[in-house]
């Protein structure tokens, strides 16, 4: 059994364009990964391929589960709750999650709801962007699973909420679970990342441990990441 997340020869085309090609990636259990890349580079697509929401070629395995249906048991993704009517209340959304995910831990959800100050009686339509993001994070982390995919969890969020979300991640991530956090801006999460994966030129451009980058190149993660987009960078 190969534990963790493995992608082999993954390719994805959409609308007669190649979005991703030759994606090979192995992530070992327990790691927190920063998935970086410019807007539209294919970060979200990569996550959607892993969940099975997008259909591409190649092999994707989470703890040996390769079939999409089975894989879904092992992955929790920050979906944007668009399948719910706008009038749906937060607690109804929570009940939906409790119903359909056998690994949803209501106790954990309640702890996070308190910590992130989420009001269960509100309707989805009346949530602010930050509040909705916090709800999505709480729902995603409340599942006890092997892989968490957080797609740009900090976009449009004030710094106070951002810190709370980062603390929730540290607090509630199971020890051997993998967490992938995508962002096009790295500095706010750099300190909690084990590794970074950079999506560039329609493939995985770099995959390296953050402390290795700091030791080897004597630069910060943000500076390193930015240097990848400058001509003739010297970290190859």
């Amino acid at each position: 059994m190969t534990a963790g997340l493995t992608l082999q020869g993954v390719q994805y085309r959409h609308g007669m364009k190649t979005i991703l090609h030759d994606v090979d990636l192995t992530i070992t259990p327990g790691k927190i990964i920063g998935l970086l890349g410019e807007n539209g580079a294919g970060k979200t697509t990569l996550m959607r391929l892993i969940t099975g929401s997008a259909k591409g070629k190649g092999t994707i395995a989470i703890n040996d589960a390769t079939v999409v249906g089975e894989r879904k048991q092992h992955v929790s993704f920050t979906e944007q709750l668009r399948g719910f009517a706008r009038e749906t209340r937060v607690d109804q959304v929570v009940n939906f999650y409790r119903d359909v995910y056998g690994d949803f831990d209501f106790q954990r959800y309640q702890d996070m709801e308190t910590f992130l100050q989420i009001d269960g009686s509100l309707k989805l339509t009346s949530l602010s962007k930050g509040m909705k993001e916090k709800l999505i994070i709480a729902l995603t982390l409340s599942r006890r699973t092997d892989l968490y995919l957080l797609d740009e969890p900090f976009s449009g969020i004030d710094s106070m909420s951002r810190k709370r979300i980062i603390n929730s991640i540290l607090q509630w991530k199971p020890d051997d679970a993998i967490m992938v956090i995508s962002d096009h801006y790295v500095s706010e999460v750099a300190a909690i990342l084990d590794e970074i994966v950079v999506v560039k030129d329609q493939t995985i451009f770099t995959h390296e441990a953050t402390d290795t980058i700091r030791e080897k190149y004597d630069v910060g993660i943000e500076a390193y990441y930015e240097s990848l987009y400058e001509k003739g960078n010297d970290y190859d």
Partner: peptide, 17 residues
Amino acid sequence: VRQLALDVTANVNTVQR
């Protein structure tokens, strides 16, 4: 380890190292 991770806002793996 987890308490230390929370105290300094770092990853459990990093604190372990």
